[in-house]
């Protein structure tokens, strides 16, 4: 389905998007943006779920379970932390608008 050059094209275009999307980010947003992109790779949860869903042996089940738990931690923790950071951001910025 996704293989060979199609995969390479997706990879290349997505890399450009990632580069462009944060092209001129101000220094104050460095840490929140790092946290935000940390949340986005929490999508690994989807893959961990599929891996656990296909697991058969005890070994695979244990690793899959750990994988899903870690990925869920990445996604939820990443969201909570980013949201708190950006919330603080707004209260100091809100008066100027």
């Amino acid at each position: 389905m996704i293989d060979g050059f199609i995969a390479l094209y997706i990879f290349m275009l997505a890399a450009f998007v990632g580069h462009e999307v944060i092209g001129r980010v101000p220094v104050i947003l460095h840490t929140p943006l790092m946290s935000g992109s940390n949340f986005v790779h929490g999508i690994v949860l989807v893959g961990a779920m599929v891996a656990l869903g296909r697991a058969d042996t005890t070994l695979e089940l244990s690793i899959g379970f750990i994988g899903v738990a870690l990925a869920a931690g990445n996604a939820v923790g990443g969201y909570v932390v980013t949201e708190r950071m950006l919330e603080m951001f707004k209260s100091s910025k809100g008066d100027k608008k």
């Binding site: 990879f11 790092m34 790779h41 999508i43």
Partner: peptide, 16 residues
């Protein structure tokens, strides 16, 4: 979804 999100973060993170 994993390919695109992962690659975008990889590129954005490297630049950052």
């Amino acid at each position: 979804a994993m390919i695109i999100a992962g690659t975008v973060v990889g590129a954005a993170g490297s630049l950052l």
